[in-house]
Design a binder for these strands. Structure first.
Length: 873
RNA sequence: GGGGGCAUAGCUCAGCUGGUUAGAGCGCUUGCUUGACAUGCAAGAGGUCGAUGGUUCGAGUCCAUUUGUUCCCACCA
């Protein structure tokens, strides 16, 4: 093995090997319990970013853990066609060639998109592999695959037949740039500085006017009424009369409607049913005509008269000038308000009335809410259930049609002959009613999230009753960011319940966003994104993975920092070198099972620590607390195994006694092997590379069994006793450092203790690690001579003659400090134990522990006092 | 308007169902060619856990109020 950890030498090689060995494949095995994760499919247009890296790392860690535990673990990967995002990109691309959708036509354009898909969909897959993702690639699914299309049609037709899908003219969010309808979830609001334009609407036949305030004057061509609050004494007499729409010179009614807020603005609202959701409702209540004054591209239509053809903002500008010139403008005031933007192209969306397809949500939402309420599905962390309820309980009908070409086309045909609307799972060429053959399929495609909602079952073969579907569905855990709960998680839940009659997954593990070092969101426009592939190139995939997991609490955002990845890389190097040390020592040694070794105290201590690590890591992983699991392994590996055990065992490895040496090596190998297994789900590459270098192992660690806690190896008492040895080492080191005793100068240690055997058994280690020459058991301080430092420990009292290094005053100071500390501890424990409430109500073990602690500290205090007296003499 | 999150060492953050002497990484100080590792080792400094009040034998952890910060949802023209 090389001296330094160098991931480039083995990561790609190992990944290839895993693939060739078929380690990722999940095949139904009825002797095993299935464990399924479906991957949130990345967009085919996308490149791997830090968000993916975190998402995939979490999933891969969980699936590897479960696989090693013996589950039939399936991680099903896929890619998403991302209707709008992809179409926008391809439109941009062909634009450079002087082409457009219209020129190419539907067929021609779709050919170009498929070309794009074939070119780029593989890219993200390769990037996922770089991270070490152990997905079953043989099941790689694209959301436009045949099986997904089949599922989409099945679901659409079923919902249509249940009247849960309908077509109607409603207010929707329109993106004038993408020229398509959007769902509510696809609109992002941002506050913008705008204006209130106060416009005078004169009452018909009278000389007075109503002052109307609006932020979007250009929509006034679509005004079909003016509303005042029926309670509003200022205006209630006018209800039923008419006002004359300025510029247009059309009379429109004054209606009374509670929508008009007396407190806000002038209390008069212009009603534009075609361009405002609230106005639309008012329009319905008062039976007002719906007049749409804008084209699909955001320009004004012929109803805007002389402004016909102008862009909405240009129209606004000129109209305001004209209103001013005509004396209709009563004033302008600045006004900040929230404006909706398209989540793909960020253009300002235009609410407008349009004939679209909708999914009726109320009935679907109810059981989806119940599923979470009754814990059929759990959010981790739980607080995200609240986000989910909030959305589900207020959900409006879902606009699913998109005026795009790339996507699942709506399976509805219209008969030109009789006007019949036919919704069918298969293509229709003859009208079932009139027998006419002039049928046209609906031009629109479905929202990308419509097919994504079916992902947990469409990927497993739905609507067919496949063996896979029966075995792997419902899936176990869905891992995704909190930004995607509405788009996807919520929709999968109601879809799974509706179409499969079973929830799609049992747990939803929500993670946060990765931010940059300054805490800003990573975004293209800021240019602060960090490319995970560059990080992998520089530090290795394991380092990146570990940095994304360690010390991260579920659901919380984290900041990316090179320093952290570097620290993780150092950890990899640590593991690497510790392993190198162990493997070096296996040469010429005979590795035996633990049962055949006479275990030394240090051996039992590290084995005990290992058992705790196994127990705690398993527990944490089962609760999806990966950050904690990582921390446990980091501490165990670095502190317990490397800093302590390896150092403790070094003298043993140099022993003349071969049986002793073999024993030490065997324990080293045992602990290392188990640690690697525990670490493998997090850092698959380095653990496997090392594993293969350990004599006696075969195959890959990927298929090894995850360590199980063994109570027989817990050695709780031995471990506790051994910590006394560690105390001796730590304290001697500390005193030497404090007394400025050079490390090379070996000290003598005199001990009064009742643990002679334990200390003798570890003499070599103590001498080496504490930097001592010899240990002598004595009955009193006097043996150590005058200039001795006293260290009072639970295991015994140490006296270290420091010769000329000792400074009596300094030593007194040190002991006084100790005394202070111990006294404080006694006071704390004492007050606790004197508290009747504590003694009677706290668990017995806690009280006993406290008592033992008190005794220990009291004893220590006595010894320190005695020593102080001796010095003062 | 409604709902979250965060506030713990100089910096970035852990701390799960209340019970250890409150932890880690980085940074800082002091020392170390300790034959696995300087991507390292040892010793250390550094925190009234945002504030106030409450529940409890016991609160960083639970409740209320409050300050700052941040996000999401809704949206009054």
């Amino acid at each position: 093995m090389e001296k330094t950890y160098n991931p480039k030498q083995f990561e790609d090689k190992l990944y290839k090997d895993w693939e060739e060995k078929g380690c990722f494949k999940a095949v139904r095995d009825d002797s095993k319990v299935p464990f399924t994760i479906v991957m949130p499919p990345p967009n085919i247009t996308g490149q791997l970013h830090m968000g993916h890296a975190m998402d995939e790392t979490l999933q891969d860690t969980i699936i590897r853990f479960k696989r090693m535990q013996g589950y039939c673990a399936l991680w099903l990967p896929g890619t998403d066609h991302a209707s709008i995002a992809t179409e926008v990109k391809v439109v941009e691309q062909i634009k450079e060639e002087g082409l457009s959708k219209e020129i190419l036509g539907r067929e021609g354009f779709l050919d170009r998109v498929w070309d794009w898909k074939h070119k780029y969909a593989g890219r993200i897959v390769e990037q996922l592999k770089k991270l070490g993702s152990s997905c079953d690639w043989s099941r790689l699914t694209f959301t436009m695959d045949e099986k997904c299309s089949k599922a989409v049609r099945e679901v659409f037709v079923n919902l249509y037949n249940k009247k849960l899908i309908y077509r109607g003219s409603r207010i929707i969010n329109w993106c004038p740039c993408c020229k398509t309808a959007l769902s509510d979830a696809e609109v992002e609001y941002a506050e913008e500085d705008g204006h209130f334009w106060h416009i005078k609407y004169y009452v018909e036949g009278e000389d007075k006017f109503l002052e109307v305030a609006t932020t979007r004057p250009e929509t006034m061509f679509g005004d079909t009424a003016v509303a005042v609050n029926p309670e509003d004494t200022r205006y209630k007499d006018l209800i039923g009369k008419k006002v004359i729409l300025p510029v247009v010179n059309k009379a429109i009614p004054i209606v009374g409607d509670a929508h008009a807020d007396m407190e806000f603005g002038t209390g008069v609202v212009k009603i534009t049913p075609a361009h405002d959701p609230n106005d639309f409702e008012v329009g319905v209540r008062h039976n007002l005509p719906v007049v749409r004054v804008m084209n699909d591209d955001g320009t004004m239509n012929e109803l805007a008269g002389k402004y016909n053809g102008l862009d909405r903002y240009e129209c606004r500008k000129r109209l305001v000038e004209d209103l001013k010139a005509g004396g209709y403008l009563a004033g302008i005031e600045p006004h900040a308000h929230n404006v909706g933007h398209c989540y793909r192209c960020h253009s300002t969306v235009e609410p407008l009335v349009s004939k679209q397809w909708f999914v009726k949500m109320k009935g679907l939402a109810r059981p989806a809410i119940d599923a979470v309420t009754y814990k059929k599905i759990s959010f981790v962390p739980e607080r995200f259930a609240k986000t989910y309820y909030n959305w589900m309980e207020n959900v409006k009908d879902w606009c699913i049609s998109r005026q795009l070409w790339w996507g699942h086309r709506i399976p509805v045909w219209y008969c030109a002959g009789c006007g019949k609307e036919i919704c069918s799972k298969t293509d229709v060429s003859v009208c079932p009613d009139c027998g006419g053959t002039n049928l046209k399929q609906d031009e629109d495609v479905l929202d990308t999230w419509f097919s994504a909602a079916l992902w947990p079952f469409s990927t497993l073969g739905y609507p067919d009753d496949t063996s896979d579907l029966e075995y792997f569905y419902p899936t176990d855990v869905l891992v995704t960011g909190y930004d995607i709960i509405f788009f996807w998680v919520a929709r999968m839940i109601f879809s799974g319940i509706e179409h499969m009659r079973k929830v799609p997954f049992r747990d939803v593990l929500i993670h946060g966003l990765i931010r940059d070092e300054k805490g800003r969101k990573m975004s293209k426009s800021l240019g602060n994104g960090i490319d995970p592939l560059e990080i992998i190139e520089k530090y290795g995939a394991d380092s990146l993975r570990f940095s994304l997991l360690q010390g991260v609490a579920p659901g919380n955002d984290m900041r990316y920092s090179d320093a952290k990845v570097e620290a993780c890389r150092n950890f990899m190097n640590k593991i690497w070198n510790a392993s190198r040390f162990v493997i070096m020592n296996t040469e010429g040694a005979e590795i035996k099972p633990l049962s055949e070794i006479r275990l030394l105290p240090a051996d039992k201590w590290i084995i005990s620590k290992l058992q705790s690590a196994i127990r705690d890591v398993t527990l944490a992983l089962n609760k999806f607390e990966l950050g904690i699991a990582c921390q446990i392994m980091y501490d165990f590996m670095w502190s317990d195994f490397c800093d302590w055990y390896i150092e403790l065992v070094k003298p043993v490895l140099k022993s003349e006694d071969k049986a002793k040496r073999d024993g030490a090596v065997s324990v080293l190998v045992f602990v290392l092997e188990n640690s690697l297994k525990l670490l493998h789900p997090f850092i698959p590459f380095v653990t496997d590379e090392i594993y293969r270098n350990i004599p006696g192992t075969s195959g890959t660690i990927m298929t090894a069994e995850f360590p199980r806690y063994n109570s027989k190896l817990a050695y709780k008492k031995d471990a506790l006793a051994f910590s006394g040895i560690m105390d001796i080492i730590k304290e001697v080191r500390a005193v030497k450092a404090e007394m400025n005793c050079p490390p090379s100068k070996k000290v003598h240690i005199y001990i009064t203790t009742e643990s002679k055997r334990l200390i003798s058994a570890n003499e070599d280690s103590i001498l080496k690690l504490a930097g001592a020459k010899e240990i002598k058991f004595v009955h009193s301080a006097s043996k150590a001579g005058e200039n001795a430092v006293t260290i009072v420990l639970a295991i015994g009292t140490l006296y270290i003659p420091m010769g000329e290094l000792i400074d009596i005053e300094k030593e007194k100071e040190r002991l006084s400090g100790e005394l202070e500390r111990v006294t404080a501890e006694i006071a704390r424990a004492d007050s606790k134990l004197n508290n009747m409430g504590f003694v009677s109500k706290a668990p017995k073990k806690l009280v006993d522990d406290e008592r033992a602690k008190l005794d220990k500290f009291i004893e220590m205090r006595e010894k320190i006092l005695k020593q102080l007296r001796a010095l003062t003499k």
